[in-house]
Design a protein around this nucleic acid. Structure first.
Lengths: 343, 343
DNA sequence: GGGCTCCCTGAAAGCGTTTTCATCGTAGTC
DNA sequence: GACTACGATGAAAACGCTTTCAGGGAGCCC
């Protein structure tokens, strides 16, 4: 009976491995083994120790454990924002998968670029075992820092050449093509528009490219007047309608996401257009928005929750074995046709 | 020059306090002081050490630090779910406040009640400095465990008698009263309905009570046929309309939340009713839903983000000083009148 | 000039684990 | 019956930090 632990005398405070060892009349090494590699311990001792653990409500101090093992079973999840259907879905999928794999999620949304205020490390760096990240201007710093520290990283919605960074993407091209072909059946190619998000945005660019490519494949060279970039916002959709109202009747629009589509829908309805008669509309992402509005909106379904889940899945693999080969997951997107674009 | 640290020779791996100490030719105690209480160190040494810290990109190992200080600057945030406007708003407010105060958020949504699978502690217990919690059946276990371990806790949307548990609530009564009075101006008391969420739900009960009280104050005794309980879902709203369609025309409904209101709106529109002419409708929570639908929906605004922020605020105070007196915050709710209930 | 204070710094203990290494039986092998 | 092998256990080092305790030096007062 080497040392006497505080807790064993005070009764309060968390029991330590030392307390368990004393109560079970074994060394702390044995207690540790019971927890981490039970087969190394004889059945008899094991049961005795487990009983004491139960009785004392002992659970290993994660700090001490982390200090040795350099692992916390906590994964960072960094998004540009946290609000709205899109991110919310992502987070939900990630959370579910993390639980399933026995990890916890340290969530962070860096809306402004002031992440690096006072020395404090941006994310829970040092704490987290890995990081799932959606890169945007505000948290580019996080990305750099993660790379610098050698933390396992997986990127959502961005392709990266780095050999040890997994990427979880959605097949923007397929969904876009499907949507454009759907619109082409009923509306002449020259009356099709793509109203996207920010020009810098990875997804928007892919979608715009696929839009143009599909038109071309149909024998129509898309003019620059058919592809527009703005922001992922309702407001941009509205503004676009204001500016293009004169050419809207009889045309069809594929929006860069459902927010934009909502703006387009509302603004054109406000100005008396009836969908899909006067204007056919397809959104992107297939968020709840699409089913809430009337007429219900067609939208290209993007499996957000699946993206979140896949990112955590890949991250966990990489955390557990940093040498696994690069994984690039491309999740399918499919057009869901609803009222807003029926011929 | 006492020991030689690994990192100082290998070059790789994270610099430790030891490396910094060597490079700056001081003891590790001094390095620690430079970081934690700079005034204890002479300006000259301080600058030198800081320079080395900068150069080596040193940052203290949070495990080692936590082992000593018993703090991680990570707060748990446990919700019954993570999806949807409501929780999303909560999380957003919490995240922003946490960043502001220099904390990180360990988010957890326990949809099913199997939290306690294999011994693994439910949340990041042991890791987190405190817990903001919304109690529901699935995570009641978390609540008990938190109490048992003496972890600082604040409750969202639940009142609790515990002397050391802060509560962040919304003033359901005020908002409800306002909404009912608004409806009363234009619709007879006998034609008012309250269609709430689950009967067990804290908020729904408060709202139902206030609904009844306000009618009574207006001289009308609410019949049991005017107050209904179901679920916080679109579907329940729709079902309610199906069952009560015969008495709907000319009446007014206050819904338990916007989801229910949406169901009511869509179902009654599907059956040919025109709002607000045939039916006046007010939702609750004032989520984005309310502004998306047409006619735009009146709703009682509930400051979700503020609830999240306040909970983190209170939690941080309690973490930093566990003896602070109990804090009960009641955030205001106000009716936002839009098209769906205009007279 | 001696003694006091005060400021700055270092040595070392300790936080609660995991893990290597050594030890001690006990059983199996020839 | 001696030797080997192996299974079960314990002692102790190490992880990287904070903090108490002491000590050394400089400035001050008398």
């Amino acid at each position: 009976m080497a040392k006497k632990s505080k807790a064993s005398t005070t009764g309060r405070a968390h029991a330590s491995i030392q307390d368990v060892a004393e109560a079970a009349a074994v060394s702390i090494a044995t207690v540790s083994r019971v927890i981490n590699s039970p087969k190394l311990v004889s059945a008899k001792t094991r049961d005795r120790v487990n009983a004491v653990i139960e009785e004392l409500g002992y659970s290993p101090n994660p700090f001490a454990k982390g200090l040795i093992t350099r692992a916390s079973r906590v994964l960072g999840f960094a998004l540009p924002d946290i609000h709205g259907e899109f991110y919310s879905g992502l987070l939900q999928g990630a959370n579910a998968k993390a639980r399933e794999l026995g990890y916890h999620l340290l969530v962070s949304a860096e809306s402004r670029a002031d992440a690096h205020r006072d020395g404090q490390r941006a994310l829970g760096f040092g704490f987290i075992d890995g990081l799932a990240l959606m890169i945007t201007e505000p948290n580019a710093a996080i990305w750099r820092e993660a790379r610098a520290t050698g933390l396992p990283v997986v990127l959502m919605d961005t392709e990266s050449g780095e050999p040890d960074v997994d990427c979880i993407l959605v097949d923007n091209a397929a969904g876009t093509r499907e949507a454009v072909e759907h619109l082409l059946a009923g509306t002449p190619a020259s009356k099709l528009f793509f109203v996207g998000g920010p020009h810098e945005n990875f997804d928007t660019r892919k979608r715009a490219d696929a839009f143009i490519a599909t038109l071309r494949a149909a024998g129509h060279k898309a003019s620059t007047q058919q592809v527009w970039f703005g922001a992922y916002s309702v407001d941009w959709g509205r503004r676009w309608v204001e500016e293009h109202f004169h050419e809207l009747r009889g045309s069809a629009v594929l929006a860069g996401n459902d927010e934009i589509a909502l703006g387009i829908l509302q603004a054109s309805q406000d100005r008396g257009l009836v969908l899909p008669r006067d204007l056919r509309l397809v959104g992107f992402d297939d968020t709840r928005l699409a089913t809430i509005v009337r007429p219900a909106m067609s939208s290209v379904h993007v499996p957000m929750a699946a993206v979140g889940a896949a990112s955590i899945d890949a991250l966990a693999s990489r955390v557990e074995d940093p040498t696994v080969s690069k994984r690039v997951v491309r999740l399918p997107t499919t057009l869901v046709v609803r009222e807003s674009s029926r011929v």
